[in-house]
């Protein structure tokens, strides 16, 4: 009787298993990399209606974050400045600049400037700016070095795992309250700072929630 299956079919089951394994691994790796916020959000750098340069204003000119984002330490929502805030300086400085035309127009017409939102947590996540900055969590922890950005981009993934990293070990992110808005700050003595931070977490009663209802209210 002739062989029904040729000889090469002996290796076939092993090959099928191997191929399946390779496919599965690459699918999982692909989804993990391309479908997670670390890839899909980080680096998001939309074109804004006004080419506001954070590097120029915050770093070179040394404006405090709170000159424009003025309610970040009193409200859960960090405000984007009104056109009048821009005009406070730009009614004197660079009055005729074409880059500022939308600002002047908004100031004159009363219509808002349509800034493109970059950082957005989902509706089912509660985030309060004030409680973070008032307990020594700097802007830089979530927004990156915005003072170095000529065009702002999404720098951190803002995933839940990423939030929890810090909520589990707040002493690694906490800093003296007078350095919260100094995005370039690094401790002179990291070891001494860590000792201070561990104490500060206790003394300031920093108790970041790790339960679901802390953020998903």
């Amino acid at each position: 009787m002739a062989n029904i299956f040729p000889k090469w079919s002996n290796a076939l089951p092993a090959k099928v298993v191997l191929a399946f394994f390779v496919l599965a691994v690459s699918a999982v790796a692909g989804v993990t990399y391309y479908f997670t916020p670390a890839y899909s959000r980080v680096g998001y750098m939309p074109t804004q209606p006004v080419a506001f340069n954070h590097y120029l204003h915050a770093e070179q000119l040394g404006l405090d974050c709170r000159y424009c984002h003025s309610f970040v330490d009193v409200s859960g929502h960090s405000n984007v400045p009104d056109a009048a805030s821009c005009m406070a300086c730009h009614s004197q400085v660079r009055r005729e600049s074409p880059l500022l035309a939308p600002v002047r127009e908004s100031y004159a017409s009363g219509m808002p400037i349509e800034w493109v939102r970059i950082h957005q947590v989902p509706d089912y996540v509660y985030f309060n700016h004030a409680v973070h900055v008032n307990r020594g969590i700097s802007c830089v922890e979530c927004h990156g070095n915005v003072n170095q950005m000529e065009v702002v981009w999404h720098d951190k993934p803002l995933t839940m795992a990423w939030c929890l990293e810090c909520h589990r070990a707040p002493e690694l992110a906490i800093r003296p309250l007078d350095q919260v808005y100094n995005l370039n700050w690094t401790p002179d003595n990291p070891h001494a700072h860590l000792e201070w931070a561990v104490e500060a977490v206790v003394n300031w009663n920093v108790n970041p929630p790790q339960s679901c209802s802390g953020c998903h209210r």
Binding site: A83, S85, M111, I113, Q120
Partner: peptide, 25 residues
């Protein structure tokens, strides 16, 4: 699908912020 991003959304601040009104409070 890989090109799917959340839709662009906008932040519309006041032209002239009314005194005493703090967004979020």
């Amino acid at each position: 699908l890989t090109g799917c991003r959340r839709p662009e959304s906008y932040i519309l601040p006041f032209s002239k912020q009314p005194e005493g009104s703090i967004p979020g409070l």
